[in-house]
Design a protein around this nucleic acid. Structure first.
Lengths: 159, 159
DNA sequence: ACAGATAGCTGTATCATACAGTTAATTCTG
DNA sequence: CAGAATTAACTGTATGATACAGCTATCTGT
């Protein structure tokens, strides 16, 4: 290995270390932020619940297994989340017409509304936080995060 | 407002929405990844424990309150994390010489070693996940994540 | 048609976290 | 300087998200 290659490798290691650090930190901060903004209106959309509604909105009604697989969650967890969401009138359960075992979960109008409100609040928050960023930097961040997630998702799901 | 401005604003909203989406997704994937890689060796470094050791390593021994404030965690949570870490021999408690109420937490050699091992494993994972990224893109991601975290941290701590 | 797989649910356990209350030590104030 | 207010750490208790194991009903392939 040439000196040049060694140096490049070393700096790349450092970059990976930074990424690792920042992702870990982001998760802590994200938790804290979620908790901080988790007033009464949001509390029912803790964690996965929000993502469930997002997912139902984005990809249409689907059954519990599909949701669980997509969100990397155990089926029992999704079942309970869905029960809570149903109790609060944010989703509806219906028997799957093509599979007697299945239950199709759909968002209710109230659920979509609540989801949109939380999403808007968060988007506003990011607009606030990133107020002094250039549009280019914001766009780059969004793009790289998307690519990171795709890579992570592939990695998580494949091996 | 000109059409041009309206369009720019709209696209910027969309960018913020993407960022919001991707951060939420990253947190879910990060959770899943942490759980998946959480074999015996890692299990004791769940969540905040790892960050505590990182922090002690980066900024030196300090008391529980300082840690809690820095990590946006309740003091009681840190107390319990610290107790678990002490039970496992990864940190040491010592009375604060300048404040009889305080307890100074220091990482033990074993703790630093464990932390480094987890960190190396994660860094390796990211190297794997981002194998086909250009060094420039990795560097940009690291930089933007750092800036995002700084912005988030300031926002969380200020108002 | 039956054996094995699958969908969803329930019971149970764990873990991270917060909030409230307790005790001891420090700092402030009159 | 003595009592009051504050702070550090800890403990009790509650909640919430999650996983795993076991259960029942249904489906699918041979």
């Amino acid at each position: 290995m040439s000196d040049d290659q060694a140096k490049r490798t070393e700096s790349d290691e450092a970059t990976l270390g930074r990424i690792e650090t920042e992702v870990a930190l982001l998760m802590r901060l994200g938790e804290a932020t979620r908790r901080a903004t988790g007033s009464a209106e949001h509390r029912v959309l803790d964690r996965a619940a929000y993502v469930i509604l997002r997912h139902l909105d984005a990809t249409g009604p689907q059954n519990v297994s599909a949701l669980a697989a997509r969100l990397n969650l155990d089926g029992s967890t999704v079942t309970r989340q869905v029960s809570a969401l149903q109790r609060d009138g944010l989703i509806a359960r219906a028997p799957d017409p093509v599979d007697g075992r299945g239950t199709v979960i759909s968002p209710t109008p109230a659920g979509l509304h609540r989801m949109a409100a939380v999403r808007a609040a968060r988007t506003r928050l990011y607009g606030d936080i990133l107020a002094d960023w250039t549009p280019t930097d914001r766009d780059t961040l969004a793009t790289l995060l998307t690519r990171l997630n795709q890579a992570l998702d592939t990695r998580t799901r494949r091996p």
